[in-house]
Nucleic acid binder design. Sequence first.
RNA 1: GGCGCUAUCGUCUAGGGGUCAGGACGGAUGGUUCUCAGCCAUCAGACCGGGGUUCGAAUCCCCGUAGCGCUACCA
Length: 430
Amino acid sequence: MDDKVIVRFAPSPTGFLHLGSARTALFNWLAARSRGGRFLLRIEDTDKVRSEQRFLDEILEDLRWLGLDWDGDPIHQSARFDLYRAKAEELVALGAAYREGEAILFRVAPGRTVAFDDLIHGRIAVETETIKDQVLIKSDGSPAYNFCCVIDDAAQGITHILRGDDHISNTPKQILFYEAFGWNLPRFGHMPLILGPDGSKLSKRHGGVSVTEYKAEGFLPAALSNYLVLLGWTPPGGREILGLREAAEIFRIEDMSGVQAKFDAQKLKWMNGEYVLKLPAGEFADLIAAQLRADGLDPNRLPPDRMVQAAEQYRIRIKTLREFGQMADFFFKDDFAREAEGWAKHLGTPEGRSALSLFADRLAGLDDWRHDAIEALCRDLAQEKGMKPAALIHPARLAVSGKTRGAGLFEIMELLGREAVLRRMKEAAQ
RNA sequence: GGCGCUAUCGUCUAGGGGUCAGGACGGAUGGUUCUCAGCCAUCAGACCGGGGUUCGAAUCCCCGUAGCGCUACCA
């Protein structure tokens, strides 16, 4: 078993980090970290028109956010054009390539089979008849993708190339270049692409496709990376919730599936919920507060200790951080979202409103504003009036939170505070 | 069109000649509760089709079919 593993992730800074690319990065990172190897970055910015610094900044930020660290400084292809040209000239001198106008093309001789043993798919063979002469250097002087890819992989000493299935047909072309230079071949592994739920290529119309979007929606990096890693790889034993570090200990490229997987947003949500449950209370509250700010709500409307408690009330009920602001907006503003149907059902009738004002009047005299005292008062009142507690609870829940669902009413009341509770109940009872 | 990859519940998958074809997400039903979520208890749900090989095929082989990818002086 060869001991050194050097892999790379080579993003092109022409857009945001796509989930599929993130997954590729994840598996390369896993391959390196599982074998004490190196995980390098290479910026494929040969397209100077489409490449932008802001895209690169965001891609690197997203990688860090996901928990992927890389070794050494990234290399930029845009700074290596001279090298690519020199290497192309070498092939011209060797007679393996020729000039055509300003461009340099590689001659592909027919009548040969180019084969390689793919780490994931096994042996893949292609006839050179099906490969036409390859552009090395374009007429505008920039290098063609397959060529600079090979030059850099060789220069960086890459031992394992783990990339998407869409590169399978590039591999034989690249192998030809390695042969022309007399270089050793790296191992190749082609992993299937992630598909949208309908089986087509994952795209915007399936929902979020960039890591940034998931971050904004309140997904936890550990959950997103965990889910992505499960698409195409099953840990021995079948455990599904496992951290990156843990995964690195048992990951083997050979265990990866060669089957394309559909992206299941529901399972991602479930998994995120699992990670939300595991967060320490302080960290959870901080994340919730940050999410509220990002979504235009002011977490300071609640004192810090109540903020923590409010977050805890909803922890089991939310799958993403953003859902807290949607379910618990009434803690942070008075023009909170109201469910029209529930409002009509519980507060649209004289009985509902009178139950509410009865409850509110009684509450006004309560000294001990804690949830258990409020609950005792509510139940005593219901018994006294010969009604079900629910007849008091539902109108009050709507008045106070605007929602038919959510945390326990009495806990909500305690956290929201007497003043706001009584005010909202009285307003709704009008 | 040519070349290539793939094919187990709706989804992610385990299994790899003899299994009740296992798990997870989602779904359904019942219970608990002020609602929701959760929790508890159940349930439904799959080996793409056809030929071989074999005593026996989800598993091995071939052919179909379907999906996806590539077929650029994009990366």
